[in-house]
């Protein structure tokens, strides 16, 4: 493909200082992710998967090497631009849902727009209702997140992640806290939305069924990478 990659990482590394010792949680990562791709990041615990996701989501910018998203070096963005990047270009889905408990489902959905002001309020409201409808929770608009089940909460989180049509959706173990059936439902939903919204989807997961749904797998070992095709024999 001759389209410019959405994510371009060269020699990407992240070092943590643990007391006196220093440790590379991520090192020498070479990565290109294209728009619309679906990527699974796997590896044993402590391999650096979450670290990578945080870097991609601009929650952490103390990295070594290069990391460009949409051709833009994340390290060079200021606080406000980074915040806007997180709000508009990235959507997060976490293992523990991370909904705001003091807000209703509707307000939770609208929060990215409240914070970034990307859409006019009426448009955002319309899109939020659409999305909630889409994830099958239309009736829950006024409910508090704590009254919902785990699967419902994760669906709300998915809807919230997609509100501002992000080009990059980052899911850190999205099914980790869900039982098998619910997990399938959420994954199906994510697959459908991925197709509809034409976004790039990156999973961090241990789950081989998730990996099977992806185009590509990035395997990390101790901060270093080994790339493979899913189900492939290479």
């Amino acid at each position: 493909m001759n389209i410019a990659p959405l994510v371009q990482a060269r020699g990407l590394g992240r070092q943590f200082r643990d007391g006196a010792s220093e440790k590379w949680a991520l090192q020498g990562l070479e990565l290109q992710i294209l728009g619309g791709e679906k990527l699974a990041v796997t590896g044993p615990s402590g391999a650096g998967k979450s670290t990578l996701l945080r870097l991609l989501g601009a929650l952490d910018r103390s990295y070594a090497g290069e990391l460009r998203v949409n051709g833009c070096e994340l390290r060079d963005l200021d606080d406000r631009a980074l915040a806007r990047f997180r709000g508009q270009t990235v959507g997060f889905v976490f293992q523990s849902f991370n909904l705001l408990p003091s807000y209703s489902v509707g307000d939770n959905l609208l929060m990215p727009n409240v914070l970034t002001g990307a859409l006019p309020a009426a448009d955002a409201l319309e899109r939020a209702r659409e999305l909630l409808d889409r994830v099958g929770l239309r009736a829950c608009w006024d409910q508090r997140p704590l009254t919902l089940s785990g699967g419902q909460r994760q669906r709300v989180a998915v809807a919230r992640a997609l509100l501002l049509k992000p080009s990059l959706v980052l899911c850190d173990e999205p099914t980790g806290a869900l039982d098998h059936d619910t997990a399938q439902q959420v994954l199906d939903l994510l697959d459908e939305l991925h197709a509809e919204q034409a976004c790039t989807l990156i999973y961090v997961t241990h789950d081989e069924r998730v990996v099977a749904r992806c185009d590509r797998r990035l395997q990390l070992f101790d901060g270093r990478m080994a790339e493979r095709q899913p189900g492939g024999s290479s």
Partner: peptide, 16 residues
């Protein structure tokens, strides 16, 4: 702190 972190992840700037 969790809620504050969520705000930041959803696009909240330091000043917010």
């Amino acid at each position: 702190r969790a809620e504050i972190a969520i705000l930041r992840a959803l696009g909240g700037a330091s000043w917010d």
